[in-house]
Amino acid sequence: MSHSFKETPHNAITDSGIARVIPCKELDLGDPLKWLALGWRDIMRAPLLTAFYGVIFTAIPWLITYMVALTGWHLVILPSIVCFMLIGPFLAAGLYDVSWELEKGHSPSLWHSIKAIKRNAVNEWGLGILLLVLMIFWLRVASIIHALYPPYLEENLENLLPFLALGTVVGAGFTMLVFFISVFTQPILMERRVNLATAVLTSMNAVWVNKTPMMVWALIIASAVGIGFVTGFAAFIILMPLIGYATWHGYIDTIELKRERHYE
């Protein structure tokens, strides 16, 4: 199967005052489902590597939950999130490398995927720190919203509803911001070795130009996360690698390429 060329939108930002922005293509509404199909094909072609990364992505939230339950010390959540936000981009890079190697007709290996984290390490660390800052900011805002709840009110749905609604709206805003910033940033950094500003602005531009298809992709990711939590994180063994592989194919399908590339 090949990634066919799509028309480059005339309103794609090709330059900015901060950094170069790589143009994107116009996506169809069903493209995210095609990425999932290609991602599933990668799972079938690299089951052992998929299991390796899937177990890691499953173990991290399980370990955080276990430590909180064991110690009763909820402050452990913050340092755990800090670690995950910093190493998350590097774990994702390993999955992207697997898809990239399959795309090139190579046999992916664990060592090759691990070495992928060194391709653009400085800017990948920068992405991790950027996501970390946003996460800490969100935690502080959430604490403020929680502090606004009057202690004298009974904790029932009627009293909690305004604060739950406010928290949901603010949380959705932060989630959308992170999605804009990061959806294709890591694959861009890994393959093109551009700076962080170029990768972030390119990702944001791609989402803005393709609002509806990218919202479908965001809902797919949110659904995968929701299923993972409902299953006690067990579903992450498959779902996280699937999303990782599909993201690579989404990047290839969305960001303008210098030459046509085929996925055999």
Rank of each mutant, 00 (worst) to 15 (best):
M1D: 08
S2A: 11
S2F: 05
K6D: 10
I13M: 11
T14D: 07
G17D: 10
A19I: 00
R20Y: 02
C24Y: 00
C24T: 08
K25R: 14
D28V: 08
L29W: 10
G30W: 02
A37M: 11
W40M: 15
W40S: 05
D42C: 11
I43P: 05
M44P: 00
P47C: 13
L49M: 11
A51T: 09
T58E: 08
T58P: 00
I60N: 02
L63H: 01
Y66W: 14
M67F: 09
T71D: 12
W73R: 13
L78Y: 15
P79I: 07
S80H: 08
V82F: 15
F84E: 06
M85S: 14
G88V: 04
L91S: 03
G94S: 11
Y96S: 01
Y96T: 05
D97T: 14
K104F: 04
K104R: 15
G105F: 02
H106N: 15
S107M: 09
P108L: 08
L110W: 13
A116W: 04
V122D: 11
G126W: 15
L127P: 07
L131S: 09
L131F: 11
V133M: 07
L134I: 15
L134W: 07
M135R: 01
R140G: 05
A142G: 05
I145S: 01
H146G: 13
H146T: 09
A147L: 10
Y149A: 00
P151R: 07
P151I: 12
P151M: 06
L153K: 10
E154W: 01
L157R: 06
L157H: 11
A165K: 12
T168C: 05
G171W: 00
G173I: 08
G173T: 07
F174T: 10
L177G: 07
L177F: 14
V178R: 03
I181S: 03
S182R: 00
P187M: 11
E191D: 13
E191V: 07
R192D: 09
R193W: 08
R193Q: 14
L196H: 02
A197E: 12
T202S: 10
S203T: 03
N205S: 14
V207T: 04
V209S: 01
T212E: 10
M214W: 00
W217A: 10
I220L: 15
A224H: 01
V230A: 13
F233M: 08
I237D: 04
I237G: 02
M240K: 08
G244K: 06
G244A: 10
W248D: 05
H249T: 13
I252D: 03
I252C: 08
L257W: 06
H262Y: 07
H262E: 13
E264A: 07
